[in-house]
């Protein structure tokens, strides 16, 4: 599917960047004229994916996180969150609701929320190399626009 527009953002895995990342995604998505609910769904999913990279990929140090936002020709928003951190040994287990290796601030519901708020979610991970989360959400075309 052809990419109509894209931005690529790179930032260190500081928790202060969670808010920045979801706000950037919301601003970029505005080109698709989404409803408030669609924007909130995108912000929530981005927050989860970026927080995972910040908390789990780099547990003891700061590392690089890349957020790619793409608009595809079918009026879909594709979001890629990539890190070069510790990776996930068992992706299926990580995607299980309530499973977490994090501390008490993590509920283990991050992937569940990404799955329910986006249309598609793919997780590729290699232990020791990093993780790439790719998700997409079609934004409805609104009548009269």
């Amino acid at each position: 599917m052809k990419v109509e527009n894209q931005v690529i953002l790179e930032f260190p895995s500081r928790s202060a960047n969670e808010g920045f990342a979801r706000a950037a995604a919301a601003c970029f998505a505005a080109q698709l004229d989404p409803t408030l609910e669609e924007v909130n769904d995108v912000k929530t999913a981005v927050s989860e994916a970026v927080t995972n990279a910040i908390v789990h990929a780099y547990p003891d140090k700061l590392g690089k996180v890349v957020l790619k936002l793409r608009i595809k020709e079918d009026h879909a928003l594709e979001i890629v969150v990539k890190d070069w951190g510790v990776g996930i040994e068992d992706v299926d287990q990580a995607r299980t609701p309530l499973f977490t290796t994090g501390s008490e601030e993590r509920s283990g519901m991050g992937f569940t929320i990404m799955e329910s708020f986006m249309d598609t979610l793919k997780v590729r991970s290699t232990p020791g190399k990093g993780t790439t989360v790719t998700m997409s959400r079609k934004i409805a075309r609104r009548a009269g626009r």
Binding site: S47, R106, S107, I113
Partner: peptide
Amino acid sequence: TFTDSSGIAVLIR
């Protein structure tokens, strides 16, 4: 104005 799964963890705690 916004929450993600962190809000779930806060309420459960």
